[in-house]
Nucleic acid binder design. Structure first.
Lengths: 135, 135, 135, 135
DNA sequence: GTGGTCTAGACCACC
DNA sequence: GTGGTCTAGACCACG
């Protein structure tokens, strides 16, 4: 499955779930018309309270990513891919801005920041050549 | 003064204070032997409860950045500069890693991440050429 | 319950609570995976402000004894037993060294110290054969 | 000089001074009729606020260890030696009891405590064969 | 004047 | 229900 949660770290579980579903749609791993995993199934798999999964889906519904198909479940909406790509772009941009602001607030200049970023990026990007491959 | 807090944003105020003092020591704006701004004074200046400032200082004390001189105030410890530089480096590295991991998890490849970072960095770094100048 | 506080004596209440929980984990009275007594419950039982208990738990969290399970409570971490045994050993050793140094600074020689310790220990140890029995 | 203070460690400075003078009298290093070091002189030597030294002497006066000899200074009173030996005994006994209670509260049994004490005592007592010799 | 501790009570997010 | 944060204000010891 494409979703995994990390209870520690302060990030709300429902948020992690919603975000990962959004990313999956943006990537095409979930396509419009597909059924999203059921609340019970996903809750069981993640060892998480069903309420938590339900809340994640509620967010996705509000953002027009999924819709309920009565008697069937939750399906990915037709316009979801574009929506999710936008959500993803805005989310990432905001996160990037925050962390860049932090480095500049700390007193580093732009080139020190660039070198820090490149160092860490080259370290990390190796493990991500084929994301999920080893998971 | 070198510290300012932002009530919104979810980051605890006591954390913002502690971090900014740490950065000030790392930068040399506060030197070992100096008295840190008093709890009451800083609380008044930031329009924040003294307990919140006290909590920030408690963290700094635990990290061996300041020590209490009873009846005098809080003084920057002798080894503080190195400690703060280490703290700053580790903090920034961890934040950078987190956000990079997020972008890669979202399905971007390394070059897309590079371009995103460079775009945002060049936008931001202009305002930081002389930090505080326009504030 | 395994914790009781003594308002007099100068020892901070939050410290007494943290120490006693540490000892309980070291003894096995609290095992990894267990839920620590809730902040509100413990505060009520000890007739102490919830903030004070929260502060004690904050210390324990910093020492990696407990971790917060959001919406659930505080759980004893997996490595906690070893950590607490180490904390206990270091704490006691330091306290013993301090008091021994005091006696030697006071001008007593080693044998005078031994006799003082044995006198007091035999007086006290009787009440502790079955700790809590007479309480 | 027989007095030295340690600002860190939480023990009030005035307390450290008073206690060390008490011990010096108990040992005979200061004898009845001797002049105690003047407030200014001692304050300067210890790099401490004169108020702090004054407070220490106030305590000693209250405990009938010293008395003011107008125009001369503070002298050790005639009965001081016995008084100081009693003070010392009570102080040490109380400190010893406290730490023993802590070890027993921590779950150690009497023999474990004995072994802990003996280990630390033999380590420490070596440096104290001739106290102050290397200072 | 300084910091440290504690109480009381509010509000938030999460489950 | 849970913990986390913050405010408001009191009291203490120290210098």
């Amino acid at each position: 499955m494409f979703v995994q949660v990390n209870a520690a770290g302060g990030v709300p579980v429902y948020d992690q779930i919603a975000r990962q579903v959004t990313f999956a749609v943006a990537n095409g791993a979930l396509a419009p018309g597909d059924l999203a995993p059921s609340v019970r199934e996903l809750a069981k798999e993640l060892a998480v309270n069903p309420n938590t999964v339900a809340r994640a889906y509620r967010e996705l519904q509000r953002q027009e990513v999924v819709e309920t198909a009565p008697g069937i479940g939750l399906v990915i909406r037709s316009g979801a891919r574009r929506v999710c790509q936008t959500l993803r772009r805005n989310l990432l941009r905001e996160r990037v801005q925050t962390v860049l602001r932090e480095t500049l607030d700390a007193g580093l200049d732009a080139d020190e920041v660039r070198s820090l970023l490149e160092t860490e990026l080259s370290k990390l990007s190796q493990s991500y050549r084929r994301p999920g491959e080893s998971a």
